[in-house]
Design a protein around this nucleic acid. Structure first.
Lengths: 330, 330
DNA sequence: TTTTAGAATGAAAACGTTTACATTTGTCGG
DNA sequence: CCGACAAATGTAAACGTTTTCATTCTAAAA
């Protein structure tokens, strides 16, 4: 691979000049610029991003980190797509880290990201009290949080109004005259689980429908959806409707429901948090709270790139609206 | 951030010695090793992967590239998970590039990856004739292909027996007495589309069931599934069964089928290529050809790491078996 | 003519490592 | 007591850029 010195030699200039035309900085004679560009093409020269990164911490090195809890969750896939589109447009590459809700793995990835000298990071932290990430933010490193915030720290966040979303979903269930509405939650350590629970309770309150026996805490996984749904259906006095705390849980609950041959919505209604692009392909089409995941990713990406270029701008908390997509599952 | 020289100074040794204990290479006195390790902890020293990468091209710098066509396709997500698990175990980080079936984007990402000085690359190329990737392989750079090969070039590949998988699926349809079996294919430029078509034709042949009117070519997307399925159902003599060419197409076709209120399998049967972890959650549970996607990723990761440490070992083409998961959609 | 200002370029240091080579020290055989 | 070897460590060059500072050159101002 040809380096900058090869280009310089062949063009009869110094590497400094080559660097200058590459970064079209300062003044360089039009004729030499042309010649250098020609040589670059001839040699198929490609600047080393690594060297660039090593040398200049104050100049964008065009690498972004993304740290997410679960790549298997379609929500994060869409967030990732959003970030990636923005990154691509701005000539950034992405180093993706999937920590699978495992704090050890998260810490290791955080270390790696730092040591890769990335320009900035979009992260959905393992919890509100993620000490490691907090420190990184405190050190003034550009970070944007998605889906989950960081307690007691000022940081850019893009998320959704979880409580309102849950409230809308459960209210719709109430209006449709369901009486025993269960909630299968994700990990209690994740702030959004709590907020969704709050919305659930608030919607149930006026009609006095709340029953603590109908609430189940899991680990945000497909399996927990399968199992907790079974538990609920096995209750002596089972629910007539289900509010599921995320994507994966919904899908898991559906497996159990179908396996038992229960009819939706006649025997059990269901509304899920998190829409999926194929929700209409389910039978019956699923009613769900739509988080604009792609949009979240896009906004987060934009915010991050802004912060990189202006580290001092005040933090923004961006709350997008969750929208209830009413289909036929309740 | 503390650098190696800080550690060296504080420990009263030269940076060379520090480097040696970091790479536990050569002989270094046990006492000094201890002292250095202690200082490293004290200063929370973290070696810069960037500098490491810049300096030594012949030593693993612990960064892998992954280049995939469509992160929205759950198949690739699972492949990615497989790669990532192996990478994590071997202390590699992953830089993920999603080119969205867009050749321009693929080329840009290939450039970036090169210039990031990654150790190796797992890629699903845009086509068999991907010139750019071919060159990279020719230059002796460690590459493992997944899902799609590279024509006329010796390269490690991990994929699935596409023809057999399709054959099994369509045979099952034939045995179940369906007479007009349609195929909605993905992009014709992707080798696997062709192979799946071959299996489809082979299964139809003995019973003379093949009808060119029942075959449709799309672009491997959800939308193409929606539209082409509609086209087929609108035929004067519509199919009684559907074989869909991938994940996304299946989901799209399901949307159309449900929207029209067609009963599965009574009015239209369906078997899809690519299983999903939530296939049992569909109603009715979907019969599908299961590619062991996670396994594919894992194997590819292993192969890549092997190749990095032994660039000369002969190439391996690993064909895993696709398995027909019979559920109730046909 | 002599300054002077700017434009264009070059020389060399720096980024944080690895590594080839050199040096010091200690040990042992003769 | 000397030479030789091995173990432990140090010195400095390299990796491929960016960037500061210095230099050269040209042309306009004095």
């Amino acid at each position: 691979m040809a380096g900058m010195s090869d280009v310089a030699k062949r063009a009869g200039v110094s590497i400094a000049t080559v660097s200058r035309v590459l970064n079209n900085s300062e003044s360089v004679n039009e004729a030499t610029r042309m010649k250098i560009l020609k040589v670059i093409k001839e040699l198929k020269y490609q600047p080393s991003r690594v060297a660039k990164r090593l040398r200049s911490k104050r100049v964008s090195s065009n690498l972004l980190g993304v740290l997410i809890p679960d790549i298997q969750n379609p929500f994060y896939v869409d967030v990732l797509r959003g970030i990636e589109d923005i990154a691509y447009k701005n000539n950034y590459a992405i180093i993706m880290c999937n920590y699978g809700q495992d704090e050890k793995k998260e810490i290791m990835y955080l270390d790696i990201l730092q040591s890769e000298a990335i320009d900035g990071l979009v992260a959905a932290p393992v919890s509100e009290n993620d000490q490691r990430l907090k420190n990184i933010v405190k050190n003034g490193f550009p970070v944007v949080c998605v889906d989950r915030g960081l307690a007691g720290i000022d940081v850019d966040i893009v998320w959704v109004n979880n409580e309102e979303g849950a409230f809308a979903a459960v209210s719709h269930l109430v209006k449709s005259n369901y009486k025993r509405i269960a909630y299968i939650s994700g990990l209690p350590s994740i702030p959004s689980s709590k907020m969704r629970e709050a919305g659930y309770r608030r919607a149930l309150k006026p009609n006095n429908l709340f029953d603590p026996a109908l609430i189940r805490w899991g680990d945000s996984s497909y399996e927990s959806g399968v199992n907790l749904c079974a538990e609920l259906l096995d209750l002596p006095n089972p629910p007539d409707a289900l509010f599921t705390g995320n994507n994966l849980i919904t899908l898991g609950a559906l497996e159990t429901i179908h396996k038992r041959g229960k009819l939706i919505p006649a025997e059990i209604a269901i509304v899920g948090f998190d829409d999926m692009f194929w929700s209409s392909s389910l039978n019956p089409p699923l009613t769900a709270v739509r988080q604009p995941a792609y949009e979240i990713g896009k906004r987060a990406g934009e915010l991050l790139i802004q912060r990189i270029s202006d580290p001092l701008r005040p933090c923004i908390q961006m709350t997008l609206n969750a929208e209830l997509m009413i289909r036929s599952s309740c």
